[in-house]
Nucleic acid binder design. Sequence first.
DNA 1: GGAACGCTTTCCGTGCGATGGAAGGGGTGA
DNA 2: TCACCCCTTCCATCGCACGGAAAGCGTTCC
Lengths: 274, 274
Amino acid sequence: MPRERRPPARTAPGRSATSRALSVLDAFDGGHRTLTLSHIARRAGLPVATAHRLVGELCAARLLSRRPDSRYEIGARVWQLGLLAPPASLREAALPHLQDLVITTGRTVHLAVLDGDRALVVERLASSRTQPTRHRPGGHTALHCTAVGKVLLAHSPPAVRDEALRSPARYTPWTITDPGTIRRQLDAILTSGYAQSAQEHRQGVWSVAMPITGPSGVVAALGVLAPLTAPRLADALSPLSAAATAISASVADVDLGDVTESPVPVDPVDEPAP
Amino acid sequence: MPRERRPPARTAPGRSATSRALSVLDAFDGGHRTLTLSHIARRAGLPVATAHRLVGELCAARLLSRRPDSRYEIGARVWQLGLLAPPASLREAALPHLQDLVITTGRTVHLAVLDGDRALVVERLASSRTQPTRHRPGGHTALHCTAVGKVLLAHSPPAVRDEALRSPARYTPWTITDPGTIRRQLDAILTSGYAQSAQEHRQGVWSVAMPITGPSGVVAALGVLAPLTAPRLADALSPLSAAATAISASVADVDLGDVTESPVPVDPVDEPAP
DNA sequence: GGAACGCTTTCCGTGCGATGGAAGGGGTGA
DNA sequence: TCACCCCTTCCATCGCACGGAAAGCGTTCC
């Protein structure tokens, strides 16, 4: 007699197969770089059997990889694909000048773009002797109390500005939480061309930032961090301005994607001589 | 009378829904950072209607984004996810020391890992005044004729070594294509601790590299480029060695992923003060 | 002007592959 | 020894992925 079997009840009918696979990727974040199959299933809200199948496919596509300890992690393929995304292109164009800025100022430098109601940190550069920072590439930071955030906010449409100033969070005793005061600062930034934050995001840290402009307005903000003990504004502004100008020029050349179509993908980086 | 309609013929039955969605992502590469819907469909080998649906889902998940000119590009989400992958972790640990190395040598520096029968460039750092290079992060380079490649090859299992030396490609008149000669160089690298390449990959460029060691052996190679006119080996070896040691120490602390499970993903980078 | 072309978007009938409960095997700690 | 957790495989059902067709739109070319 054939075994009795009822069809499996769908956990979440209406979710497409693709969205389920992508929810597996979403199970990973900064605090969960490696996960077991069961963790993935729980965090993605999927039955283990389903997660098992999807994980297998994602591994075959190298979007996930399996570690020797049988845990899973995001695969190198995702990293490579991510380098094609706009933040990576911006980073690539800016990197030499960020480098120059670190050398001339000896400070930690940041490059950030607007991402909804937060700033997305695109790159953070520092030598081993400069002070560490909480901001990491791919992470977010607040708009109303950091120098880079203020620059981005000052050049944002009113809707973004209003949203960000609706209820400014307090990070330190020096954080400005009065929307009116911040608005006046933002207006001043538009005329002065640079923004400051004095311990408003983190105690003991002072920062100054300037906008990076692309063909269609302000695309990013470039900031320099310094300990509060030596906030010589004049020392920072000149090299910062030079770097911002240089990056803006580089950015203008980028981003007009290659339109030509080639049937076979080629690696433009590394081809043997004929 | 209802319209007559035959079921659509499956283009490639056997391919899973997930693999089709991923083939859309695979349509993008270094030479094709932005694509129209039709290009995606052709490159992925999918009917346009199918590609349209998949692209819509990937956009909803922010793995793709649509530009103002209605072309598609890899989304910032992929870039963020990619930062969780091993190459990005390695890069993050090494960055301050790469920075130091650029400052002390004034040269372009490379960090690369083994990826099959090629070297995967994890990071390339240079100021705006150092010479440009063909190697870009995420790109590949040959193992047998670059300094970083030789380091990786020297510390690889015999199978990898044999495969890479089966038919070494020629890049310049100075490229060594005799497997026996390369093997002797690799053996020498194991005892001397560093590798060189003198115009073997690119005319006019000289490079030297050293291994980065993690808990389980050699995990990466660190290299410095210089124009052929000033290949002072002694000047480069000392700072290179110091940086390699420092990075090896940093790497040892990384990679043991967070095992704790939290139901709600939190952003560890940026939390308001209580 | 208008025909031809390419690209995008929507529609919807079909049938196939995604689905997940169940079972089994393995490892670990009490 | 038992209890618990994790991973893996199996497979019967039916939900939804599939893609041809057609319509809309902008551009190019006689």
